[in-house]
Structures are given as structure tokens and as C-alpha cells.
Design a protein around this nucleic acid. Structure first.
Length: 802
RNA sequence: GCGGGUAUGGCGGAAUAGGUAGACGCAACGGACUUAAAAUCCGUCGGCAGCGAUGCCGUGCCGGUUCGAGUCCGGCUACCCGCACCA
């Protein structure tokens, strides 16, 4: 008699067996074909695993398990991105060392992941807060520093007033701190910077060589924001000086009727004595300085500005003098901080010109520049533009750029929206920056053999109001000697941002216990690049860009063997609450995976999360849907009662078996887990309809279903197929010829409208099919003239009549 | 504003290269089993009309191409997610 399906008993049992057998350890046999599947390692928060975590983990677990069955040496690792603010804030509040908090959270996460039966190679677990790990994070920083890509500078930063910490532009969302929602203001601070801008072109161009879903590529390109144009010098009247601007539309230079400089532009101070309305100008500048970037953008609807009276510039194309204004719609941080304004062909300039009654001169025909700026670059010929008249925009660009270069007035120039990466945090729970400041020698890197520079214990983790990290209070630690001259020196007290540890972690997995290098060249050569990396869309512009930057740098340094770290990148959709809203504590719609495992089992949770909908799209949780998946697994379980002694496939099921193998195999590769599972459900329904299943059919089903529901399939295997394991079986093969039905149902249409169906032999000749169709539709064809006969084999017959 | 995405039954969602719209699942309804309920198994399940074989309509909206359009083309609308004065 068959036993009941009890996931609570069988799941922990198999998890223990896999653990004892080291079932999923990647081997160091570098002669085997490899497959490196990667999911983003989690931040071990105090809340434990969220029901959103298992979606990507299960998806790539399926891929990893399938690859093993296909004979690959698979690396599917897991670790902890454990530095970060929530842990530190918790530590401050509860006076517990962040290390202890981290350990506790990691233990919880790990136990939860175990309970879901993932085939991670736990021997390769890593933790970014482990000195053995951050040794190499610091080592990479030193490399960057020595290559001139890390520098310290005083700059206005985004300062979160609540976290008391500087934020990267990417961490400011809608003028507020991405993490705590606190107000963000601008503040001057000395910061370590990484020159990611030096890699802007490589980061864009590298995208051509990898297989990322399109929207990830598009986002990255937009974020880097490469634009080509020209820098042009405008002479300042009555001086020998020039004001340099950047434009992407040098072709419209004849229409430049005024100039605008950013309120922060040094030009204003330089010529302060000539500005007749200096008081007014300074008042405007002060008002602009108080606004955050966000406020500036918010108030964008209404243009503001002040003319710098007494200063005029010369349009190098027309030779006419034009006024110079200052306005906060021009940003100091992009281009040269100054623009030529062409109101006829730029919306912002147009608005500004309308408001301040500045002249609007059309130089590209095709619009009505009194009504709106005409910005179309695809059509329209140049007018009012001297030697450019009659040219298309694209040709005019080339002609004017050549002319500017010939006359020493300007040159072609590429600009980027991407800014350098603010790399310091005034915080405790991060990697110490391995630099000391010596009065004599300046910033001096620690010798590599002194790494890792350990994070010292401090009394308080509270950041300070003056913007210094809690480490600054540790005078014993801070005061040191200069590695260069031996004189007194002070350690850097800022720490690295959380992005640091996650910018190279995929390399460490290839050789996680290496004491002499971040990983051995052999391991890197074998495992890299990652074959398939899946993660959230929220990481496309931050983590993805940062890690590609570091990896590309390490490639240039000869440390890693390939320029791009990830061969393929996909993204999963979010799991929403039952009400269709984002899950959050405040909304009270959070589902805890532990509860689902306890009530239905891990296999049900895995199956449900894969069945919930298209992998890339958001999907709302449904407890009823979970029950449906449990029911499906029960039905598989109960197939035991219908098992016959036959080893192969039965004649009537053979085609269905081959079809299902094909469908499941292809769908797993294409991330179409929902339809793969639907196909298996369908097959199981067929077994029920037949009232029997052969051992051969059952065997194949268990293998196909194993990546999705590994525990139950192992249990059924052990009950019916002996000591072996499903996870060691070869992935089933299908015979294309056997996936095709011998008799097919085809649709009968008249004038494209459905008029019935008929069964016919798959390879029946066209004439025969048409004859049969005409016979079937004979009554309807009465009195009609047959105009055309269309036959699509296996699909449709369409008779066109009049 | 710019970029990307989505729109299909009561619901989640299927539909390789135009070729039987609604696979699979949920809910609902009917039946079997049961003293009963749950569970399970079997069946029905887009709308309108009809006792019925059947007919007409139907994939956000308007139009087009085609023997045939959820799918292609032109023009819209709504919602979601990024970015947001980047010259």
C-alpha cells in the first residue's frame, strides 16, 4: 500500500543525504565541460528570507540541476553580501556588534535556503565581511589606486541627514535616501572616488559581446549616456578670453542667440568686476546653491535666470555679439557648465527665450519655431546658416565641426552622463580603505602584505555629525606610521560602500579558499565568465555597472582572463502581495516562505513560484494557486498506484513522452518554467485518463520534474528504482520524429472562418486532404464558386469561395 | 518630457515562423464516493441567440495589409517600471 505524501518527512531527509554526499559540489577537474550559474547573493537582513528570494534561486537551481544531468561540471554557489547599513543601524540600536548580528542573520538565511533544497555548493560559501574575503576587496582597491583610478577629492555630495552618510547619485531616489527615505542635502565632503568614467566607452562597447536581455543593455547605455557633439569656444567681448561650451547640435550654431553659464561657473567670479548687476547675479547664485539637485529638477517647469549685464560673447559663426546669462537649468557637472542657447531647436532654450524675450532664429526648416522648438534631426534642411544652408542636419554637423577645427574654434567631443563613483562611506560596517595619510608623502597605500587591514572594534558605531566615520574615534588604530617614510601618519577612517564586496564576488567563488590570490589563474581561466547570471532589474545600473567596471579593470591588469564577467544576464519579476501590491510590512501583505514550507512543503513552494507566471514579469501571490501546485505533486505521488511493470513507453503514450521531453527541455532553457510545468501537468492528466503509467514513463517524468521538485522525485525514485539518485541520471533525450502525431486534426475554414475540423494522416498528399475537406464542407459549397484552395500541412484548409 | 514594459475569460496565465484563441492552473457549477463534510475521482466552464446540430460576436481603441491578424503595418488610449533641465 502506498504511503501518504509527507513533505515534512521526506524533505529534511533528502537535504541531509545531499549534504552528506556532497551531491552538488563543483569539482576541480578542469578537463570537464563547465557551467557557471549565478544568482545574486543576498544581504542577510534581520527579516529572514522573503518569498521573492526563491524565485530566481529556484529558476537557476533548475538550470543548474539540468546541466549536471547533461554532464557538466556545474558551479552554482551562494554567499552573503553582509556589510551594510541595516545591520549597523541594528547594532547601534541594540548595542550588539554588527559581526554578531551578521552571524545570526546568516545562520537564519542559511537554514532557510537549506529548507528549500537548493543545489548550492556550500563548500564555496563566501561572506563579504570575512577578513579572508575583504583582504581581496582591499587588494583590488590598492590596484585601482596604483592605477590612478582611485583619488580623493572634495566635492559636493549627497548627504543623507538621517543616516549621516554620503550617498552615490545612484542611491538618491527622488531627492531622498534610497535606504531610509531621509532627506538628502548637498554638502561638501572629502571623498574617495573611483574613476569609472575612464571606462565609460569600454562599458558601453562591451555590451555588444554579451547576451543580456535587451532592457538591461538599454538601461546601462542610457545610464552611461554617451553623446557626441562638439566643444566650441565663444570669444568674450573686450577680452582675449574665451567661454567654452559643449553642444550635441553644432549644426545649429548660427541660431545661437545667447549663452548660459551654470550659477557655479567660475566665469562669473572671474569677471565679477565687469558685471553691472552683480548683486542681482549673486543673489540668484545663492538661491540656486541652496536648492538640492532634486529641487532644481522639481522646479524645472518654470525657467529662471539672470543676465550677466556688461558681459557679451561673440557667436563664432555669425560674428554677432550675444548676451550671456546664468541659469540653473545649466548644470556645472555636465559638459563645460556653459551652453550656447539655440532657442529655435532646443526645448529648454526655447522656454527660456520665450520667458525673457530673447531672439529665436530658425536654422533648420521644417517646424514653426514661434510655436515650439523644432528638435527633429532626421528631416529638414539648414537655413539662415551661411555656408551650411541647404544641408541636411547630419551633413551640417560634419561640415561645421570640420570648419570649427580648421579655424581653431572648437573640436568634436564625446560626453557622458556617467559620473565618477563616490566610494567613501562615513560608516563603521564596511571594508576599511587601506590607505594612510602622511604629512610628507600624502596618501600612501598599505603594502599588500599588510592586508587584510582589519576592521577594529569600536565602542560606538554611531556616525558623527561632523561627517567622520566612527573609526575616527579609535586613535590607537588611526595613528600609525607611514609605510613610505616611517613618519607619523593617520589611517583613512572612511570605509567602502556595500557595492565593493559585490563587485567581484563571482570571482571568489571559483577558488574561495585561496590565501595567495583572489583566485588562482587556473580556476579563473576554467570557470570565467559566468555562463548565466540572473538578478533583479534594480541592479542593472548599479551593481551590474560597478562589477563590470571592476572586472574590466582586472582584465586590463591581467588578473582575470576575459573582459566581461557575465556571458548572459536575465532578470526576474517581483513577487507581489495577494492584493497585487508590493509586499511590505507596512502593507501587511508579506508571505513568509517558512510558513509555506511548513504547510505545503518546499517542493510545492518551488513548483508554485515557477508556475506563477512569466518569469520576467511581476506576479501576485495566490494561496489558492499554491494549493493547486500541491495537488499536482500529490497526483504525481499517486501515480505509484497506477504503475505497470513495463520498462519502456507504452505505444499510446510514446508520442506524448517525446513531446513532453522536448517541451520541458526547451522551456527550462528559455526561462518558461510555467509552460514546462503545464506540460508535465498535462502529461500526468493523460496518465490518469489512461489509468496507468509504465515504469519507463514514470522514470522519465521523475527526471523531468526533479529540477523543480527535487525531494519528492528522489523519494519516489528510491521507492521504485532502487539506490541510485535522480540527480545523477542523464537528462532524457527525445526523438524529433517521434514528437509528431501520425494523425492530426486540421481546421476547415471557408473565407478564413472556422467551419469545422477533420482528422487526417499527417503525411496525406495535398490533393487527398483538399478532396476530403471539400467533401466535409460539401453542403456549404453548394452554389458557391471555389476561387482558391489553401492547405497548410498539419494546420488548416481554407477554401476561398464566392 | 525621454526610455523600457504591459493590455487576452470571474482570476493567474497559454498560443515556435500570421494558420483551430483561451493550453495549464485557480475559482465556480454538476456528478460519483460518503450518514455528512473535507479530501479524492469524473465532467461542464468567453459572451449573446437557440431545445438542438448550429449561428453571430470576441485578445485595450480606430483604421489598414492578407484567403486568414492576439501575432504584421499606421494612428491612439490606459496602466506599470526606470531616468529626469545631461545642452
Amino acid at each position: 500500500m502506498m504511503t501518504a505524501y509527507e513533505p515534512k518527512k521526506i524533505e529534511p531527509k533528502w537535504q541531509q543525504i545531499w549534504n552528506d554526499e556532497k551531491a552538488f559540489a563543483a569539482t576541480d577537474d578542469f578537463t570537464k565541460p563547465k557551467y557557471y550559474a549565478l544568482v545574486e547573493f543576498p544581504y542577510p537582513s534581520g527579516q529572514g528570507l522573503h518569498v521573492g528570494h526563491p524565485r530566481p534561486y529556484t529558476a537557476l537551481d533548475i538550470v543548474a540541476r539540468k546541466r549536471r544531468m547533461e554532464g557538466y561540471n556545474v558551479l552554482y554557489p551562494m554567499g552573503w553580501d553582509a556589510f551594510g547599513l541595516p545591520t549597523e543601524n541594528y547594532a547601534i540600536k541594540n548595542h550588539i556588534h554588527p559581526r554578531i548580528v551578521t552571524e545570526r542573520n546568516v545562520a537564519r538565511f542559511k537554514q532557510q535556503l537549506h529548507s528549500l533544497g537548493y543545489s548550492f555548493d556550500w563548500d564555496r560559501e563566501i561572506n563579504t565581511t570575512d577578513p579572508e574575503y575583504y583582504h581581496w576587496t582591499q587588494w583590488i582597491f590598492l590596484k585601482l589606486f596604483k592605477a590612478g583610478l582611485a583619488y580623493k577629492t572634495e566635492m559636493p555630495i549627497n548627504w543623507c541627514t538621517s543616516c549621516k552618510v554620503g550617498l552615490a547619485n545612484e542611491e538618491v531616489v527622488g531627492g531622498r535616501c534610497e535606504r531610509c527615505g531621509g532627506e538628502v542635502i548637498r554638502r561638501m565632503q572629502t571623498q574617495w572616488m573611483l574613476k569609472i568614467t575612464a571606462y565609460a566607452d569600454k562599458l558601453i562597447d562591451g555590451l555588444d559581446s554579451v547576451d543580456y536581455i535587451e532592457r538591461v543593455k538599454v538601461s546601462q547605455k542610457n545610464w552611461i549616456g554617451r553623446s557626441t557633439g562638439a566643444e566650441v569656444d565663444f570669444a568674450v567681448e573686450n577680452t582675449d578670453d574665451k567661454l567654452r561650451i559643449y553642444t550635441t547640435r553644432p549644426d545649429t550654431i548660427f541660431g545661437a542667440t545667447y549663452m548660459v553659464v551654470s550659477p557655479e561657473h567660475p566665469f562669473i567670479d572671474k569677471y565679477a568686476d565687469r558685471i553691472e548687476n552683480l548683486a542681482e547675479v549673486n543673489a540668484y547664485r545663492e538661491a540656486a546653491a541652496k536648492k538640492s539637485d532634486f529641487e532644481r529638477a522639481e522646479l524645472a517647469k518654470e525657467k529662471t535666470g539672470v543676465e550677466l549685464k556688461g558681459l557679451r560673447a561673440v557667436n563664432p559663426a555669425t560674428g554677432r555679439t550675444i548676451p550671456v546669462w546664468t541659469s540653473d537649468y545649466v548644470l556645472m557637472s555636465y559638459g563645460t557648465g556653459a551652453i550656447m542657447a539655440v532657442p529655435a531647436h532646443d526645448e529648454r532654450d526655447w522656454e527660456f527665450a520665450k520667458k525673457f524675450e530673447l531672439p529665436i532664429v530658425e536654422v533648420v526648416a521644417g517646424g514653426n519655431v514661434e510655436e515650439a522648438a523644432y528638435t527633429d534631426t532626421g528631416s529638414g534642411k539648414m537655413v539662415n546658416s551661411g555656408f551650411l544652408n541647404g544641408l541636411e542636419v547630419a551633413d551640417a554637423k560634419k561640415a561645421i565641426t570640420a570648419w570649427l577645427e580648421e579655424n581653431g574654434l572648437g573640436h568634436a567631443k564625446t560626453n557622458y552622463k556617467l559620473r565618477d563613483w563616490v566610494f567613501s562611506r562615513q560608516r563603521y560596517w564596511g571594508e576599511p580603505i587601506p590607505i594612510v595619510k602622511c604629512e610628507k608623502c600624502g596618501y600612501v597605500p598599505l603594502p599588500e602584505e599588510e592586508l587584510p587591514l582589519l576592521l577594529p572594534d569600536v565602542e560606538s558605531y554611531m556616525p558623527t555629525d561632523n561627517g567622520e566615520s566612527p573609526l575616527a574615534a579609535m586613535t590607537d588604530w588611526v595613528n600609525t606610521t607611514c609605510p613610505c617614510c616611517g613618519g607619523p601618519a593617520k589611517r583613512e577612517t572612511d570605509t567602502m560602500p556595500q557595492w565593493a564586496g559585490s563587485s567581484w564576488y563571482f570571482l571568489r567563488y571559483t577558488d574561495p579558499h585561496n590565501k595567495n590570490a583572489l583566485a588562482s589563474p587556473e580556476a579563473l581561466k576554467y570557470w570565467m565568465p559566468v555562463d548565466w547570471y540572473n538578478g533583479g532589474m534594480e541592479h542593472t545600473t548599479l551593481h551590474m555597472l560597478y562589477s563590470r567596471f571592476w572586472h574590466r579593470f582586472l582584465y586590463d591588469q591581467g588578473v582575470v582572463p576575459c573582459p566581461e564577467p557575465y556571458q548572459k544576464r536575465t532578470s526576474h519579476g517581483m513577487i507581489l502581495g495577494e492584493n497585487g501590491e508590493k509586499m511590505s510590512k507596512s502593507r501587511g501583505n508579506v508571505v513568509n516562505p517558512d510558513d509555506i514550507v511548513r504547510e505545503f512543503g518546499a517542493d510545492t513552494l518551488r513548483t508554485y513560484e515557477m508556475f506563477i507566471g512569466a518569469f520576467e514579469l511581476a506576479a501576485a501571490w495566490s494561496t489558492e494557486g499554491v494549493k493547486g501546485c500541491r495537488k499536482f505533486l500529490e497526483r504525481v505521488w499517486k501515480l505509484q498506484d497506477m504503475l505497470t511493470a513495463e520498462e519502456g513507453y507504452s505505444r499510446e503514450m510514446e508520442t506524448r513522452m517525446h513531446q513532453t521531453i522536448k517541451k520541458v527541455s526547451n522551456d527550462f532553457e528559455a526561462l518558461k518554467f510555467n509552460t514546462a510545468i503545464a506540460a508535465m501537468m498535462s502529461l500526468v492528466n493523460d496518465f490518469y485518463r489512461a489509468g496507468k503509467v509504465t515504469r519507463g514513463e514514470f522514470r522519465t517524468l521523475l527526471i523531468l520534474l526533479n529540477p523543480v521538485a527535487p525531494h519528492m522525485t528522489e523519494e519516489l525514485w528510491s521507492l521504485h528504482f532502487g539506490e541510485g539518485r535522480v540527480y545523477r541520471q542523464a537528462w532524457p533525450k527525445y526523438d524529433e520524429a517521434k514528437t509528431v502525431e501520425q494523425t492530426v486534426e486540421i481546421a476547415l475554414q471557408m473565407n478564413g472562418k472556422m467551419r469545422g475540423t477533420m482528422m487526417i494522416a499527417k503525411d496525406a498528399p495535398k490533393e487527398e486532404v483538399l478532396a476530403a475537406a471539400k467533401e466535409a464542407l460539401a453542403a456549404r459549397l453548394e452554389g458557391m464558386t471555389l476561387v482558391k484552395e489553401i492547405y497548410i500541412p498539419g494546420r488548416i484548409v481554407n477554401l476561398v469561395v464566392r
